[in-house]
Simulated assay, not measured.
Amino acid sequence: MENKQFQGLTNTLFLKNDLIGKKSNQIVDYFLDRENEQTFYEQLKDSKFDWLLVPVKWEFDESNLFTSYTKYYPNTFTLHDQEICTSKMKAVIRLIKKFHHLDLTLKPFNPQVILNKFKTKVVPIFDLSQYDQKIVRIIDDWDDGSGLVVSHNDLVRGNFLKISNRWVLIDFEFASLNHWLFDYASFMSESLDPDQWPKFLKLLNLSAIDLQKLFDFITYQNYLWSYWASYMYQSTKQEIFKEIAQDKLKKLAFKC
């Protein structure tokens, strides 16, 4: 069967034999931990969870580039072009809680290491220096003793897929152990407009301390992804990454 190409922002996507292939490249493999990703897949390969869409196979080629293959479902859609109402927010929260209850052995997320991957490579497109000290403080206070959970770490709208009558999580390149609030911050910063935050926060019903931690993680993620976008723009010259960097800068300026 001839490969059918799909649009991917950072990886090459293709359809072959009813499987979606996702092939990496050296640009993204610079900052992704493919061995940790493979460990995630290996521990879930025999699972029967209908709320996760995990690759059925994966491999490294002769150039050590990683390709994963996931079952293809036609006639599906993501949250990308959906209005996120209260019922969808509740569905997202249920998925995050299920994900956090997975019992897996993964590497812990290191906020300084992943940030340094980009800070040592690029000067950000837009000046972020006014946030530097705040980010240092957030990283210093990262561990509050609440423990680590299995975390997705990249809850953009496109990583929620509707199959038949259920929402499932996809795309686990960034999965690791992390603070339990990080995924909620990820969903808010990546998938919700700030005017939707009060409704989502009401559903979470956080304490004042946890709420401040959540906002700190939102700040960190906007700062991190702005550096990531600068790195991707420098590496690819694609304007979309400059637009992402600008969007993250605007969100950094938003007063939580």
Rank of each mutant, 00 (worst) to 15 (best):
E62V: 10
S68H: 07
P74I: 06
R94A: 12
F66R: 02
Q43L: 08
I84T: 12
Q82R: 10
N116H: 12
E83A: 09
Y69G: 11
F49H: 13
I84R: 12
P55Q: 02
Y72K: 13
K57P: 01
D103C: 12
P111Y: 04
L104R: 12
M89G: 13
Q133N: 14
R94N: 14
L106K: 14
L104D: 04
Q130W: 10
N75A: 08
I135Y: 07
T105C: 10
V122L: 06
H80L: 14
S68G: 00
Y69K: 09
T70L: 10
T78G: 04
Y72C: 08
L95Y: 02
Q43S: 02
L115T: 05
K71I: 03
T78R: 11
Q133A: 14
K45V: 11
F99D: 04
P74D: 05
Y69L: 13
I96H: 08
N116E: 14
L44Y: 08
D132P: 01
Q133M: 10
Q43Y: 09
F126M: 00
L79D: 10
K45W: 04
K121M: 14
T120C: 05
Y41E: 05
I114N: 05
V122Q: 05
K88L: 15
N75D: 14
P55E: 02
V123A: 12
Y73V: 05
E83T: 09
Y41T: 03
L115D: 00
E83S: 13
D81K: 15
E59K: 00
K97A: 15
F118L: 05
I135Q: 01
A91Y: 08
F40P: 04
F77L: 10
W51R: 09
S87F: 08
F118H: 09
K107E: 07
E83W: 03
K98I: 00
I114D: 01
D103Y: 09
T67M: 01
D127T: 07
H80W: 12
R94L: 12
H100W: 01
